[in-house]
Write a protein that binds this DNA or RNA. Sequence first.
RNA 1: GCGCCGCUAGCUCAAUGGAUAGAGCUCCAGACUUCGAAUCUGGCGGUUGGGGGUUCGAGUCCCUCGCGGCGCGCCA
Length: 639
Amino acid sequence: MLTAIRNTLATRIEARIRDLYGLTHQARPEIPPRRDLGDLSFPGALQLARDVKKSPRQIAEEIVAGLELPEGVREVRVEGPGFLNFYLDRGRMTAALLREPLIAVPEETGKKTIVEHTNINPNKAAHIGHLRNAVLGDVLARLLRALGGTVEVQNYIDDTGVQVADVVVGFVDLRGLTIDAIRDLPEPFDYTCWDLYAEVGRWFGEDTERQALRRQTLHELESGEGARAEIGRLVARRIVSRHLRTMRRIGVDYDLLTRESAILQLDFFREAFERLAAAGAIRLETEGKSAGCWLMPLSDSSEFAGLEDPDKIIVRSDGTVTYVGKDIAYQLWKFGLLGLDFGYRYWQEEEIWESAVTGVDDHPAFGSAYQVINVIDKRQSYLQKIVRAGLERLNYPDEAARSIHFAYEMVALSPAAAARLGYSEASTDGKRLEMSGRKGIGVKADDLIDQLEAKSREEIQARDGSLPPEELDSRAHAIALAALRFFMIKTTTNRIIAFDFAEALSFEGDSGPYLQYSLVRTANIFRRLREESIDDEVKPEHAAALPAELWEDDLWDLIFSTAEIQERTEAAIASLELSQIARFALEMAQKFNTIYHRHPILQEGDVERRTARLATARIFSKGLRTLTELMGLPIPERM
RNA sequence: GCGCCGCUAGCUCAAUGGAUAGAGCUCCAGACUUCGAAUCUGGCGGUUGGGGGUUCGAGUCCCUCGCGGCGCGCCA
């Protein structure tokens, strides 16, 4: 509705400018910073002043003189240096917001978007950096679906990579365990591997000869045959199971697990390799330090200009394939360009589809996307560029353009958090500390979630000590989840999150629980009204008929915010800046909480006044619920 | 060396080129017999890293310098 008014206004203003001055001017009415400056604003008179050779205010007056206002616009004023400020019909907009969904779902386009996220190496526990990835990916998928998109969420499992190989070496060569002994290791298996992986790293460091074991193991993993491959499969399977459990705790799930082992064993890479070679995109190096490698020359591309070594190795001299090589094959498959497909198997215990060498006949259709969004941290921008370059060189420029790297900065540890893990301020030089799975530095995801739940439980019991345990657990979980998810999306993606326990565990101010608390307040009001046999709903036509002066500025300011939800959601997707949604939700809740103290509803004796306030609370509740659902925050009835 | 990112209040962060640069936290002073104080009100706090430029208008765009981080692996 807001967009419709905005568009009509733009068209009419453009026509006025054409009639008056014979100029073509792109009019895009903006939303002014404060509501007392109107609801929509056109600054174009300022820009036109030079060409028209009149003062901006005079131009604004001339435009206004013959401007027919669209339905729903009550008034226009010329204000400030020459802004045209438009004021909406408040009752009419309120009625529309009560009546209509806040996000209009467009027609299905049939174009699928694949969102790939999480992608944790299956060799250790997930840490809080992985949570940022998973939450961003999950919220992205929710937003795309809310706007009518077809979305397939994939979690890539690198089960044949160096990281898994290292843990296999740890179990076999360092611990001397058999496959049965590994199978019998107790949970949390991912925690055991976390420590072992760091230990193996140190062990390799002590004697570089030992790295031969890594190469041998990696070979076996790639071929899929032999005892080490068998152990690799066991390790990866047990770890993935733990990762899925962790992610389920925070409400993240997937449509498909894609396994690197399947990519290799189904010859996806061989197919991609042959095409790349035939297209001249890769060549066999015969001399120099990279002799025996297949590499992709990148020196001719401006995108890679200035690099020290502008050629990227795709196949190593020992015949194994680098990650980026496999990723090119995978990306081709995602677009349905490879001509090969996975087998698919349903993993019963985890209730999820996964790719496999051989599969069942009856499975959902996977792959063949129109657009692919890879959620991967910013440090991998270079590799993502190479994947795109691969598509371009195979003459798929459109698919390359629709290969989107959703990049975000890493999560590091604040000096205080580092100190808590045993790294003193002196050792970190008072700076934040980068997490490292290889070194075993990091806050494990499950540990943080546990702490959040414990803190929630404390807070709830401080307010109501007589809750049954199940109710306590369920509320604590909902609050912990909201705190975590909100924490991960409230910061803009190009900023490093310096993780701090005190901040992450805060349920006040800029936090998920603050949003939940606002909604609990509305629910309480509605419930109390029903208890007093007062209608807790407001009919749209009733709202429209209320005297205009009842829509006070602060009520209207909040109502108008909810009218912006559609455009704000679209903007967040377009810019891939999901923090905009979090900030917007926060703004709305802040406005509501102020109004809550200033405009009581139950105590208001004047029925019409009460109705206007109730309508505001209703619309706010509807709006914030929409946003919290988009962010995947649960909405408790009480907390 | 080349490229990318960051630098805004004491701290953590916002601000589609637009109107008086805003929140949260901290600190100080207040508001619970009222719809839940996980809240709200008020106060303290700014040369938006420095310097040039473009523009009617710059935290935002361009140039330049500084500081910090990341990338440029036969790791991913």
